[in-house]
Design a binder for these strands. Sequence first.
DNA 1: GCCGTTTTCGGCCCGACTGTTTTCAGTCG
Length: 569
Amino acid sequence: MNKKIVIKTLEKIALLLELQGENPFKISAFRKAANALELDERSLDEIEDITKIKGIGKGTAAVIYELIEKGESSQLQELEEAVPKGLIPLLKLPGLGGKKLAKLYSELGIDSAEKLKEACESNAVQKLAGFGPKTEEKILKELEHFGERKERLPIWYLQTVVVDIQNVLLDILEIQKFSVAGSFRRVSEMSKDIDFIVATDKPEKVKEQLLENLVIKEVVAAGDTKVSVIIDGEDPVSVDFRLVAENEFATALHHFTGSKDHNVRMRQLAKEQGKKISEYGVEQQDGTIVTFDSEEEFFAHFDLPFIPPTVRESGKELERLDELDNLVTLDSIVSDLHMHTTWSDGAHTVREMGEALISRGYTHGVITDHSQYLKVANGLTPERLKKQRLDIFEFNETHPNFTLYAGTEMDILPDGTLDYDDDVMKELDFVIASIHSSFSQPQEKIMKRLFTAISNPYVHMIAHPTGRIIGQREGYNPDIPQLIQWANEYGKILELNANPFRLDLCIEHLMMAMELNVPIAINTDAHAIEQLLFMEIGTKYAQKAWVKKDLVVNTWSKEQFETFIRKNK
DNA sequence: GCCGTTTTCGGCCCGACTGTTTTCAGTCG
């Protein structure tokens, strides 16, 4: 029995129980059991006694054993018979949860969006206890756009929204300080909303100005401590603002940064110490509330080191505290190994890019323009590549404390050959190979192309290994475990492309690479100076996968880097 | 449904907002 199927079944049971209006704790027990199974690294066969796992007891274990033995769950089947399928999508309507939907079904027989609409239009809904005219009106309004709004939005889109909001917040005088929180602060690839924590002693004024100055499509809620709006734009985004007193800022920020599981773990820990965590502070045994100037102090209160937002996920991070020092950080980065200039499709010259790297405090970098195959990007022929090197030599002569290396981002062609001959590559310091064409080839063909590149002695790194664009395209579906194996065998680097559209390799694959100690280069792939800033998001994303500092090529000194790039020459 | 140095019952993380009520339930994060 596949563990994934078991997890899905438990989640499905929880969902259907919810639609029966069941006890919320019972529902969450099934979700917790699914979660516990997911977090356990063992396969189903390797687990001897499943009830030994915390969160799995008699009831959920029975479901799991039945699944293993019969391949199906009688409990799930019964639920599926009792709960109409049409109710499931209705859970997505804001304001409607399991209890209300259960009532709508049992009292009015509502099991679809159409029936719900009819019932609202005939004013049958407002007659139910617990419902009223406003609820009815709200449901009708939500039904108009039902299914239109995207559930989760990609980080590269949300980033633009966050910047716009920050500009509005900076102009509100009554705000003492603010920070983005939530999954965006944890650098999730996709988020369903954006959270901001705002410190102020004049919440009324701040609320007023927020409502006035933001580009608002809809006000969802506007209370004393919480303002919730939908920001208008290409894709509308839910944004929550939490207005708190300045001394509550640190605990509020921690609380609303999450994740949920991280918070639960922290609260349990606090409870063990006789304390209680809320967004307003930490309540001591004697009832007094302690507040903090920073999240660092908050963690220190529980004898914990600062846990970066990026790793606050499953709660298990509290068991990996000794690894926190090994996480890669922006200030340990001394180079960027993938960028473009005006020689191909970049916006700035070799000199401008080089000087931008110096002003970021780096010690070295590599210029890697596109190769000849990419005509749309003005890719370089071997002749132009030679001329470009004169620019690089000249730069190095005039900047003695910094080294710019001559590289390329060379295409792996659709027929499986490489865009430059070995003797062209031989002349270069650093060769990146990547795929930009024929994404839809069968996996076998894609892997042949990647193998040609990775096994070539002059290739140092594979860039953006899957070709994905977050939330938009899957990429070319390579067998990444195999690629990681090859990288290990041939001593090659794999890239974590830091462009927020890509973040490629993804977390799961980075973790696999860590298991084999395959070196990772975090590169911005900058096509303009401003994009060198992507390094920040790249390092944070790497933290999410617990990528070790020593395995990040960009933290290596110039000497270490040179030893690596020269080993095959 | 799960769990237990508060141990077989009774709490489970905790609190805000809304719309329904006339003190609270449901939803949400």
